[in-house]
Design a protein around this nucleic acid. Structure first.
Length: 218
DNA sequence: CTCCCGATAT
DNA sequence: ATATCAGGAG
């Protein structure tokens, strides 16, 4: 596993590649962001945005989500996938937000993860993006990139990756680095065909070195 | 660990 | 055809 110093060198290079990285999920308020992140599980944010742009015209707040039958909401989000679980969770979450939090999405981690369909990653995204709390939400991209670069170990759990990142990345860069690692993973260090041959981090990247050697390009 | 699940890229 | 997508619950 590489050092904190080496990690900072690498995230500096990713920072130069994606200086404008930010949350790409369409939302107008913390509640919409929470719904969008919940819907984004195992789905591209492109498709989530296509659905939520229409969804948020029909459902303005938690009251609207519990005013319809579950089957109707299922149809409205069907194309996203995992739609039965997500519809059920959205209605349970909406009911809870109204009854326990006066209709307002809570701004702290513990209350957020107490909501249906909201786990550690989703709660971290919400408090980070909506409320400005420094966090590194570890999704599939952040996990893959961290492991390929050697910042974390391949055997590490998601939670271990998060804890390692918090140790090696300066706290004032957590939220920014989080988004930049997602962009890096989504547009450059992709799961299938990572662009190692055109990567500024190739010299420092274990996985990249391995792949170049295997491809006979080194 | 398994299940949930449609859309898209390769 | 199949791997992958801003995961979470049981």
């Amino acid at each position: 596993m590489i050092s904190r110093k080496k990690t900072i060198e690498m995230i500096d290079k990713i920072d130069a590649m994606f200086p404008d990285a930010e949350c790409e999920l369409v939302h107008k308020n913390p509640f919409e962001l929470t719904i969008a992140v919940l819907l984004s599980a195992q789905c591209t944010d492109n498709l989530v945005n296509k659905v939520t742009r229409e969804l948020f015209k029909k459902y303005k707040g938690p009251e609207d989500f519990i005013a319809v039958e579950q089957a109707e909401l299922e149809q409205d989000i069907r194309s996203i996938g995992l739609f039965r679980n997500k519809a059920k969770n959205i209605q349970k979450l909406s009911k809870d937000v109204i009854e326990r939090f006066d209709g307002i999405i809570p701004d702290n981690y513990d209350d957020l993860v107490s909501l249906a369909g909201v786990g550690r990653k989703t709660a971290n995204v919400v408090i980070s993006v909506a409320f400005g709390v420094p966090r590194i939400a570890v999704d599939t991209h952040v996990e893959r990139v961290s492991k390929r670069l050697g910042i974390a170990r391949y055997k590490d759990s998601v939670l271990e990756v998060e804890q390692t990142l918090m140790k090696k990345v300066p706290e004032d860069r957590w939220s920014r680095t989080h988004h930049q690692m997602i962009f890096f993973g989504r547009y450059h260090c992709t799961a299938r065909n990572p662009k190692c041959e055109a990567c500024p981090l190739l010299d420092d990247c274990r996985e990249g070195q391995k792949r170049m050697k295997k491809a006979g390009l080194l």
